[in-house]
């Protein structure tokens, strides 16, 4: 079976979680979405996704969570080989400067989205980051063009990097 690339959303408030997922449903045709309401549940999901030899392309993570916080989860993922390349995004209203700096330095944070977010912003960032991920990790990215940045993927295929690199 083909490797699936997941989007993981971690948020403890159900209505907010629901809104985030609703905003990025458009990507779900190619990138299944998994939801967790705590870092602990996220870990279990990560394990079960990796067990099936699937990948996590993007994580959208709240900072204030029960148990371990979002930044801790992201740093942990950065230190794990299979999730090091996962594109990491914080969606939060409450991460302090110190924690955000840590996320940037230790978890290679790709983006910080402040609540309340705009749908356009969220989908734009999701599209960009998934495009980056797909270009770097997928041999035949053609099928993703439909929901991602088609131009960049086409350029990538045209210059042949997609074929010769791997």
């Amino acid at each position: 079976m083909e490797t699936k690339i997941y989007i993981l959303v971690v948020e403890d408030e159900p209505d907010v979680l629901d809104s985030i997922v609703r905003d990025i449903t458009v990507f779900e045709k190619f990138f299944p979405i998994e939801m967790a309401d705590s870092a602990e549940e996220a870990r279990e999901l990560i394990d079960s996704i990796l067990e099936k030899d699937d990948q996590i392309g993007l994580i959208l993570c709240d900072h204030v969570l029960p148990g371990d916080n979002g930044v801790e989860l992201l740093v942990e993922m950065q230190n794990r080989a299979e999730t090091e390349d996962t594109q990491k995004v914080l969606i939060t209203g409450q991460a302090g400067l110190q924690e955000t700096v840590r996320a940037v330095n230790e978890a290679d944070l790709k983006h910080y989205i402040a609540k309340p977010w705009q749908k356009d912003e969220l989908t734009k960032i999701t599209k960009e980051l998934l495009t980056d991920y797909v270009i770097d990790h997928v041999e035949a990215p053609l099928k993703y063009m439909q929901v991602l940045d088609g131009e960049r993927i086409a350029e990538h295929i045209r210059t042949g990097r997609g074929i010769t690199d791997r």
Binding site: P14, D15, L17, D18, E34, M35, A36, D37, E41
Partner: peptide
Amino acid sequence: GYPDTATLR
């Protein structure tokens, strides 16, 4: 209401 994520899954 909103079910929790595990129940939802």
